[in-house]
Amino acid sequence: MAERFVPSISLKDFDNRKDEIKTQLLEAAEYAGFFTLVDHGISVEEIERQFAISRAFFALPQEVKGKTPHDTTTNNGWEYKAQHRPSTGTYDQKESLWLMRHSQWPSDEDVPNFREATEAFMAKCAIISNQVLACFSSALGFDETYLKEANDPTKEDCMSQLRLIHYPAAEDAAGTWRAGTHTDIGCLTLLFQRDGEDGLEICPGRESHTSFAMGDTFSPLPAKTGPIVVNIGDMLMAWSDDRLKSNFHRVRAKDVGKSPSRYSIAYFNQGRRNFLVQGPNKKYPAVTVGEYFKQAVDRNFNRQAITA
């Protein structure tokens, strides 16, 4: 498969280059729904430190990881090959740890400095997210602070999460999906990858946030340590009256031979539960963030389609 062009956007000198950056972000979001960020303020060393914490957690015995159990009502905690994808009819071949600021966290006794380091990493993700969201807010005709306030992780009703993800090594995994085809339900996702741990594939071309139409052409997005892969989620697509595109993606096993371990880290801006979602042109009725999530999950599963 040929690689698709995914814009790389520098956030360097953001305050002085805001208009230029906004133009680049808007073009990428309207065309592809995916882009990468560089010069974003998180060093390669900081990213590698967070990956080291992630690897240390996933290397623990299952009974230790299970001390932070997955709670289906909050979607927080550790899950192992538990995410079913209607797109494939199978379970994703991965384990993950979902974290909110106010959720249960692994003990520092099991992974030293886990919470302090991870909360600091999340805070930096929020700063980067706020820069992007400020650009989208003004481009869509909202006040510049609007989408930032709607995704403020310091508020009690904020649903934003960090997800540490591990795809275990697999023999003869050709033809399987480490993560089945899906879109993200929330607003904006920041994804961190590591050199050589490939597998992510993207498929632009979706026209509405309720559409399940999917093209046949998926293109690989090579994994690199440093650049952040960013994609629009369904909620922001609805919030923009379908102007900003939330598109399909998946993680594919190697076609031949052993698929090695893959680690990724995703920061999901998922909005504040009681905040209203409605675009500037009011294409769709206003709903709360909490209700949007419920409707999206119900719609996706009831139609046997694709869920984040």
Results as ranks from 00 to 15, higher is better:
W98K: 02
L99K: 01
E156H: 13
A123H: 15
F114W: 03
A120N: 14
E116A: 12
E109K: 07
M159A: 07
L99I: 11
T90R: 11
A120Q: 13
C125I: 15
L99D: 01
S96G: 04
D110C: 00
F142V: 13
H84I: 10
S87M: 07
Q104S: 08
E119I: 12
G141R: 04
F121G: 01
C125K: 00
L133E: 03
C125L: 11
R101K: 12
S160E: 03
W98I: 01
E149P: 11
K148C: 15
I165D: 03
E95Q: 03
L133W: 02
P153W: 15
K155P: 04
T118H: 03
N113A: 14
Q161E: 00
D110W: 09
H84K: 09
T176C: 09
R115E: 14
A139V: 08
D152V: 08
K155N: 09
K81E: 08
L133Q: 12
Y146G: 10
Y167M: 09
F142P: 10
D110F: 05
A82Y: 12
S137G: 04
E119D: 10
Q104K: 14
Q104L: 07
D108E: 11
S137K: 01
E119N: 07
A170M: 13
A120G: 13
E116V: 08
L140H: 02
K124A: 14
P112S: 00
R85S: 07
M100V: 04
S96H: 09
D108F: 06
K155V: 07
A139M: 07
T176Q: 06
E95L: 03
P106G: 00
L164H: 06
F136A: 06
Q83P: 04
I165Y: 02
P168I: 06
D152W: 05
K155A: 06
N113Q: 15
D110V: 04
F121W: 07
L97E: 00
Q104A: 14
A120P: 00
S137Y: 03
P168F: 01
G89P: 03
W177R: 05
Q83F: 13
A170K: 09
D157W: 11
G89K: 02
K81Q: 14
N130Q: 11
F136M: 11
N130P: 05
A139Q: 01
K155R: 15
E144W: 00
